[in-house]
Design a protein around this nucleic acid. Structure first.
Lengths: 343, 343
DNA sequence: CTGTTAGCGCTTTCAT
DNA sequence: ATGAAAGCGCTAACAG
């Protein structure tokens, strides 16, 4: 007689079945395959379920069915707006499916990443979505041996295991740097935050173009080992200008940074874009309405999330480990923080 | 025919136990109460676990122990930076505990909120953290009958069930509005996004002060039913100015909005703070480095998350349903988007 | 359409 | 310090 003692023992399938005078499996079917139960009985049971406040126990369900309809999404940080757009894409695709998302934050830390993947694996998740992988040693093994879908969102060319949604960050950075050059800027600084795989690719792209132009100088590159913020943009600009006072443009690895750079430049009396050019990255919400509006590289953040979730869901549904890969593009949005091109 | 063949069936506790020549419970102990197993045996088993790549099945564990060390955090949106700070606070408190967090996004929708709470309940979570509750009907019942910790982050005075971390948003809005008045502004608009419970409190606070001053006018209040963005700030300012061209200051429900307002004001040639004052809300990262720096209300976002998680953890650990409540303050940060006070 | 029988992989409780 | 037995709440597989 396990009645609701204290806060009440949990109501189980059997409690409902007993009250309904049927067997447990019938109640179970009402929930999962209602069409296999006669309408009459079904409705009676449904009412009972409502009345008794029965909620199925997912752990038992997962254990019995060896199935789990939630999947984990690993993001390196929560503080980056770029990841927010990505997450919105994921959510949009997942809405109206029976899948659930479980976010985990790896704090840009390789060990934490590994720990989280292990945890997810131990929960028998339907799949794992890896965004902004730090690439810890051994994670490849973990992922390779996973018996669930694994989708990675990475840079083009960094193929690991499972399905992949890729963007060519190196090429995007090249395009941005070349644009700055085309506008007539010469001493172009690169400002960035913590360098993950994607960040490193961007730095490489920038360096390639600067080297080709014979303008490369390590003193032009400034990073701070943390998530990008607007305040960081201000600091980084001051530091860059101290190292090379003749800087006439900056390429920021994130629009957050670019926002700070614009404010700081205004404070210093630098006129944008005439004396000083700014190019951002990601085309975040505020970029279009800054004064002046920000020239930036638009990356398909939302779509990356959407496509990644799509691969995930299609793979998990078919219960087969589909391996797909999609490569999404980017777009340089020329606005008013860079001057009209002279070339 | 369970698809996951070929990638290997899951390694279980029994597999490890068999290889070690011990019983399952011993392996289980090695993982949970290592001190109860002799060092020799323990190390041998630990090695085996590593070798065989064994990862415990959380579902089985949760089912057998009727315990679950993950708790759900419901946030209304992922696109609001205020919630990000909150989430960071939660994570900070949870780090280095055995608890795990599962985020769920209710999309500011009452039904979704109810669905998510139900889902969480059905997972037997250690607890539920409710932030920015929409307050769906029936959710009180759900929460009241939950046999797990429930912590809510709400406005002072909206007491529901479980433990509460509160902030007096009404008083904060009053302070902000009064400050604007003290600076000599008279026609003060209120700009906001989707009005949740906290938003409504802020609107009430603003209205009270304006009414007392005899300056209240519904035409000064402008909302858009979506998450706040910088672009929305621009649109809202234009709309407000169309309704009342004599507006000389705005109180924005979020700094995102204030950023847009500043840019738009600059575009219109309004000089801030002389002709036009701006006060934000939340003191987000960029507020301090805007040009001019933004006057805003600082709310203890991070701390709210931290304290809420703390209540959660302390409650779940003690396995008793502690009911606590803490009330956190706010602070008006006077910077340069409002002129020096004349009163 | 409904029921019976076996577990899923782990932890509890009670022995030894 | 280690083990045996008995489930946790549910679903798969096969009846009928």
């Amino acid at each position: 007689m396990r009645a609701r003692r204290g806060r009440g023992e949990r109501t189980t399938l059997i409690d409902v079945a007993t009250r309904a005078g049927v067997s447990a499996i019938t109640v179970s079917r009402v929930l999962r395959e209602p069409e296999k139960v006669s309408p009459n009985l079904r409705n009676r049971i449904l009412d009972l379920i409502e009345d008794m406040g029965y909620v199925p126990d997912q752990a038992a369900r997962a254990l019995a069915s060896r199935h789990n309809s939630t999947f984990g999404v690993l993001v390196p940080t929560l503080t980056n707006r770029a990841f927010l757009s990505f997450m919105q894409g994921v959510e949009e695709r997942v809405r109206d499916t029976t899948f659930r998302i479980q976010y985990a934050n790896t704090h840009n830390c390789a060990d934490e990443e590994k720990r989280q993947v292990r945890l997810l694996l131990s929960q028998n998740t339907a799949g794992i979505l890896l965004a902004g992988l730090e690439g810890a040693d051994g994670i490849h093994d973990l992922v390779r041996h996973a018996n669930c879908m694994v989708v990675q969102v990475v840079d083009v060319g960094i193929k690991i295991a499972g399905s992949v949604v890729a963007v060519d960050h190196g090429a995007a950075a090249e395009a941005a740097t070349r644009h700055l050059l085309d506008c007539g800027y010469r001493t172009i600084a690169l400002l960035g935050g913590m360098a993950d795989a994607r960040g490193r690719r961007r730095t490489e792209g920038y360096s390639r173009v600067m080297q080709q132009a014979g303008l490369y100088d390590p003193d032009l590159i400034h990073h701070e080992n943390a998530a990008t913020t607007t305040q960081m943009g201000c600091r980084l600009l001051r530091r860059a200008l101290k190292a090379r006072p003749d800087i006439d443009a900056v390429f920021c690895q994130n629009d957050d940074l670019a926002l700070g750079v614009l404010f700081e430049a205004q404070r210093m009396g630098l006129s944008v874009p005439d004396q000083f050019g700014i190019c951002g990255y990601n085309d975040l919400d505020f970029a279009a309405v800054m004064q002046p509006p920000l020239t930036t590289v638009r990356t398909p953040l939302f779509e990356m999330g959407y496509r990644a979730a799509d691969l995930m869901i299609r793979g998990a549904d078919g219960d087969r480990l589909v391996h797909h890969s999609v490569n999404l593009g980017f777009e340089l949005i020329e606005r008013r923080t860079t001057r009209r091109r002279t070339l």
